[in-house]
Computed example of a mutant assay.
Amino acid sequence: MRTFSLLKGMPVFEIQTGSKIGEVCDLSLTDNGVVKGLLLKKGVVLKKTYIIYLEHVSSFGQDGVMIEDESLLELVNETTDSETIEVGYSLIGKTLMTKQGEQLGLLEDVYFLEEVGRIVGYKCSDGFFSDILEGKRVVKTDEPPAIGKDAIIVNVK
């Protein structure tokens, strides 16, 4: 299990050549909240965004993500209509609600299983002072969330 915040900025390496291809900048999610791939920035001056689907990731290490071949990368179209954690249709900062109508806070991070891409938990914030006094809340789930324009609806364990 890994959080997005630990994965962000991690280098991606090609196993065949040992070359650094880019750095993870975001996660790409399906409509039902499953991680389908890693978005990475590649390039020196004009950085472009690429996606590597989870099934093409060889391993997630402590210090880098390994893929077999750079040809597995796909250029991300600017108009792509997919959910992400931070950029585009961002989930960070959205209200997290239970199916029972309880507001849990604002989404700050996600916990996911790298091998299958399933999100299993959410870290949320109730605001600066509440976080200092009570700490941030981690919510565990079994089912994929319902991702809406205004909120993310989860079934809490």
Score class of each variant (00 low, 15 high):
G33C: 06
E14K: 02
I52N: 07
K8W: 10
L40K: 01
E74P: 02
S58P: 08
K41V: 12
K20R: 14
I92G: 01
T95P: 04
V156E: 12
Q62C: 14
L96S: 01
L7S: 04
K123M: 15
K20V: 09
E86F: 15
Y50F: 07
Q62T: 15
D31P: 09
S90W: 10
V57I: 10
I21P: 00
V24D: 01
G121A: 03
K20G: 13
Y89L: 14
E83Q: 14
N32Y: 12
Y50T: 03
S130I: 06
S71D: 15
V76M: 08
G9V: 10
P11R: 06
N77S: 14
T17N: 06
G105I: 01
V87E: 08
E102P: 10
K36Q: 14
V116S: 15
F129M: 12
K99E: 10
L39H: 07
K140C: 12
S59E: 15
T95A: 11
S71A: 13
T79G: 11
L38M: 03
D63P: 06
K94G: 05
M66W: 15
I92W: 03
V57Y: 06
P145N: 03
E115H: 13
V65I: 08
M1G: 11
G135E: 00
D150S: 07
V65H: 02
Y111D: 06
L39I: 12
E14H: 01
G33K: 07
S28M: 11
L113V: 10
V154A: 00
G135I: 02
L107A: 01
Y50W: 01
V138P: 02
R2Q: 13
C25T: 13
K41T: 07
K157V: 14
S71W: 10
F128N: 05
S130E: 10
Q62L: 15
G117M: 11
T3F: 01
D31I: 08
K20L: 08
V76W: 06
G127N: 02
I132R: 08
D126C: 14
P11F: 01
G9R: 09
D26P: 07
L133S: 11
S19C: 12
L46E: 13
F4W: 05
F112S: 00
V154N: 04
